[in-house]
């Protein structure tokens, strides 16, 4: 097997940034607010993956990157909970979670 194929830090970083870019694409194209939040979660997930892989390749034997990833997961959970509560309240008032029609604060 060629040595270039064996996944090193570069391969991992490329995969992680590819996942992040897909999350950004979803963030920009979704109309449903829940879908937007899901894309944000995908991006956050790739950020946590980045922390863990950098920990593994650049500081082996330490656990700081894993602890940062742990905090990211916690904050993502809090964000999802608050986002869902906002969407439920919004749906009760406007009967829709279409982000194209969320314009009550404009103008």
């Amino acid at each position: 097997m060629s040595n270039l194929l064996v996944p090193g830090a570069f391969h991992w970083l490329v995969v992680s940034s590819l996942l992040f870019s897909i999350g950004v694409y979803g963030l920009l194209t979704r109309r449903n607010a829940v879908g937007v939040l899901m894309s944000v979660e995908l991006s956050l997930n790739s950020a946590a993956l980045n922390f863990v892989l950098l920990n593994r390749f650049f500081a082996p034997g330490k656990v700081d990157g894993a602890i940062m990833a742990l905090f990211i997961v916690t904050v993502a959970a809090a964000e999802a909970v608050v986002g869902m509560a906002i969407f439920v309240a919004l749906y009760r008032q406007r009967k829709s979670v279409d982000v194209n029609r969320m314009n009550m604060m404009s103008g």
């Binding site: 109309r31 879908g35 939040l37 979660e41 869902m84 969407f87 979670v97």
Partner: peptide, 27 residues
């Protein structure tokens, strides 16, 4: 946390906001 918690929360959010009926028309 993610698979057991957040995704279930998303499914609840989808159902509580009746997003299934909001057909995601093509952007």
């Amino acid at each position: 946390v993610y698979v057991g918690g957040i995704v279930v929360l998303f499914i609840f959010a989808v159902m509580l906001t009746r997003s299934v009926e909001l057909d995601e028309d093509k952007p």
